[in-house]
Design a binder for these strands. Structure first.
Lengths: 343, 343
DNA sequence: GTGGGAGCTGTGAGCGCTAACTTGGCACTA
DNA sequence: TAGTGCCAAGTTAGCGCTCACAGCTCCCAC
């Protein structure tokens, strides 16, 4: 306790302190802070100087309380260790920052509807203004669709779940391109290592593959199913190597393709001379697999950015031009594919 | 505008609404919400029922304003697209949630001190109670050290920067193990593909490698330097393949090892028969490289968890047992190494 | 009885900010 | 000179919550 009646306590300065130092009212300080008009330049300068001198920081809780805006968005992610979700999160965060929002994240371990609901509730309790859900499992999407939520929400993933604004990649298209490319090279048919059955991306890629085969009159082989991991791709590869008549494989992601490559190598099958392999995602490492992997590139960062754009549009009352955004993937040709019979 | 004077407006219920419905004062509602003692069971039940009926959610801004606690922690990450940072973020988020905190993230694109300062300031403006910095560059660490910040802060990365609480991996130790293992196998020396010179992890791994060679009296070859990417490992690999007398290479991470493997393969050098290769990290895919990669495993999730533990300890006034936590990495043996002369 | 300590609940103030309104001054017009 | 309008401030009232402090009831010891 200082001798001065004002005290010299060691507490954070508040707006009133700035006002006193600058010789104005707290409201004028607020005006300066918020860029309101009708403040004389020299008054503004005095206020700014006082702010600097005291190292004053506005209290965000107080502001949020009165404006009812937290400037914070929530992101629910499934497994942010995976390359895809991590990249989307990164894209979302960057876009959010440049739009003036903070980003609060929460990860899901389990993918049932209840845990999605819980995650969104948690975020909502924190006061987020909107939520992006990165949860591309069918269960999660349907959970999102019937989410009893008063918070604006955008999903990123695949699916034609029109109840919820959504941005996704043209998985069906990309898978079709990959499959078509292999058929064009003379392969009689194309085998498929699919992702988990409950992921929308798996379903769409599988469908794209299947429809393309059917359209070309090619036989549709039984699907091998993995879980996105290299390990599961390896196991699928061992089974495929045992089949004997396989000349082309389309994997639903690059990690599984890596495992497949490994299994084929161990089984003494040469890629691409015996078997051509195509992946999906184009992770940065795909160009350095043995052999370099032909794959379908999707821009995860862009996906995240577009999702955020959609959400911010909704929040700030801009008419939602489209609530279903689709981003086209693009084939990247590398040495893991060859025409049939090429040796 | 209802006929009732109370109105039937469509606004979020507040504590007073719950209190009125339950026939108690707002303070009693608060007590129930915060688990305070001296509330009669049936009163508590009435309040709980009212909360459920109105779907009441406490306003976190109001609570934060009065308690001066936001229940939010900040994370500054460098490139959350990379496997390491993404995994740490994941570990941090999970640990934070179970400790009752929210997590707000912000990504750095550039790594100079100023942008670290900005990121921390931004988080602080948002009202976070503490910050974890995942920024393993020397520049970032020194920036953190002299950060003019009134927020508790923990760094995760390497280094002996004792001014800041820090949790890191025994990079020197791990690199020494890897190098020693290769020497034990009869290799005359071990080449090294290092990470960026300004990353602490690079520096420590390089030092571990160098000291081990020197201790064994082995010659210390010139270092090849990459940037963690498979691409840079590939380029280093091309150079190493041109050297001719190399029999063992230790790469500072698995992605560069992947590129190296690719380059050696293209150059017609067999791994492990001509050249043994060891990586660092043990990313999930390392077991499926061609050949499967011997590497040094570090548990990123654990790293994140420990960092958060340290931070929460600091926040909640627990005596900081240790402010410098070190986690031991562990070698994982796979087929990319062989004794010298083995064929 | 009556004082007093528990157990339970209510009252009032105030966290730091913004929104809405009010006030005072000055220039320009009629 | 009075009236109008605009600019540049100041004043007041909350936002929804928690904290500190009263009360009130009940029960038991003396």
């Amino acid at each position: 306790m200082g001798t001065d009646s004002a005290g010299t306590e060691q507490r954070q300065p508040v707006m009133a302190d700035v006002a006193k130092l600058a010789g104005v009212s707290h409201q004028t300080v607020s005006r300066v802070l918020n860029g309101a008009p009708h403040v004389r330049p020299d008054t503004r300068d005095r206020v700014l100087a006082a702010i600097r001198e005291l190292d004053y920081r506005p209290n965000s809780a107080a502001r949020a309380l009165v404006t009812r805006r937290s400037q914070t968005l929530g992101v629910v992610s499934f497994d942010s260790t995976l390359y895809g979700p991590a990249s989307m999160l990164d894209g979302i965060e960057r876009a959010a920052r440049s739009a003036g929002y903070f980003v609060s994240v929460t990860s899901l371990r389990s993918l049932d509807g209840r845990s999605v609901q819980e995650a969104v509730d948690r975020l909502r309790d924190q006061g987020v203004e909107g939520v992006v859900v990165i949860a591309p499992q069918t269960s999660a999407v349907s959970a999102v669709a019937r989410l009893s939520s008063s918070v604006p929400l955008v999903a990123v993933g695949s699916g034609n779940q029109t109840q919820v604004p959504m941005v996704s990649v043209g998985n069906r298209y990309g898978a079709g391109e990959a499959t078509g490319h292999l058929l064009d090279l003379g392969h009689r048919t194309v085998h498929h290592v699919a992702g988990p059955a409950n992921w929308l991306e798996s379903q769409d890629r599988e469908e794209g593959w299947r429809l393309t085969l059917q359209a070309a009159g090619a036989p549709v082989p039984e699907v091998e199913r993995g879980d996105w991991s290299a390990r599961s791709g390896y196991q699928a590869g061992l089974r495929i190597a045992g089949l004997g008549d396989v000349t082309a494989v389309f994997c639903a992601n690059d990690h599984m393709a890596l495992g497949l490559l490994r299994a084929l190598h161990e089984a003494g099958r040469s890629v691409p001379y015996d078997i051509s392999v195509v992946g999906f995602d184009d992770i940065p490492e795909a160009a350095y697999f043995t052999p370099p992997l032909t794959t379908v590139r999707q821009d995860f960062g862009e996906l995240g950015r577009r999702a955020l754009e959609l959400l911010v549009g909704e929040l700030e009352g801009v008419a939602p031009a489209e609530t279903q955004v689709q981003i086209a993937p693009e084939m990247v040709l590398r040495r893991s594919v060859a025409p049939i019979g090429h040796r």
